[in-house]
């Protein structure tokens, strides 16, 4: 009963906020609605018992990806009038993308209905997991034994992403001097100062 009610609450908030992502005029508001949608999607995940996925959704999507989105939309000087002017020009492209995404959805659901997919593993068929194990341990037990290859590929993709991001955004800066902590710490009073027994009435050689 409570589960059912919470499901409808979460689901309707997800749909409503997803719609608001599109309809909000200010891109910052769009990102904030997106965060609401992610958060409620995490609620839905909890309802089907996938607590680890729910927490990951919040940690990765809300805590990291959405922060990047916010950085981007907050810091770019976006001229809204210019953006709207480009709307008509880009409608065909947008429609094409929408059709492709819809086709992928249908394909995905169709493939799911057709049966389990073997992901490059010797024996086909979905793995069965006993219900008593917390699902975080169950995921770990499969990911690091049966799906090792997939996992290492994910690592390589992350590596490529990291290198790519650095290549695209990093610029050498000029005219600023960095701090070398180790040379500061290693500096001793003897290197920097010297004691002089100064005779009266004479100048000093520096």
């Amino acid at each position: 009963m409570i589960q059912l009610v919470s499901f409808y609450i979460f689901a309707s908030i997800v749909i409503a906020s997803a719609a608001m992502v599109i309809f909000a005029r200010n891109p910052v508001h769009s990102v904030l609605w997106l965060i609401v949608a992610f958060f409620n999607a995490a609620g839905l995940m909890v309802l089907i018992g996938a607590e680890f996925i729910a927490m990951l959704l919040v940690i990765v999507y809300v805590g990291a990806v959405a922060v990047l989105f916010l950085f981007v939309v907050m810091m770019l000087d976006i001229d809204f009038a210019e953006l709207r002017a480009g709307f008509v020009k880009n409608v065909p492209l947008g429609l094409l993308l929408a059709v492709v995404l819809a086709a992928e959805l249908v394909l995905g659901i169709g493939a799911y209905q057709a049966g389990a997919v073997a992901l490059g593993t010797p024996e086909a068929g979905a793995a069965t997991v006993s219900a008593a194990v917390p699902n975080i341990e169950a995921i770990g037990g499969l990911l690091y034994s049966k799906y090792v290859f997939m996992f290492e590929t994910a690592g390589l993709i992350l590596l490529v992403a990291m290198v790519g991001a650095i290549v695209l955004t990093h610029r050498k800066s000029h005219g600023t001097r960095g701090q070398s902590i180790s040379s500061q710490v290693q500096r001793r009073p003897e290197d920097a100062t010297r004691n002089v027994n100064q005779p009266v009435g004479q100048g000093i050689e520096l």
Partner: peptide, 23 residues
């Protein structure tokens, strides 16, 4: 942006470590 992107990558790495640590 660069800090945020690097953060996402290391956060994902940590996300892979969580199930590994208990299994």
């Amino acid at each position: 942006y660069l800090v945020a992107i690097l953060f996402i990558i290391f956060d994902l790495e940590a996300a892979f470590l969580f199930p590994w640590a208990v299994s």
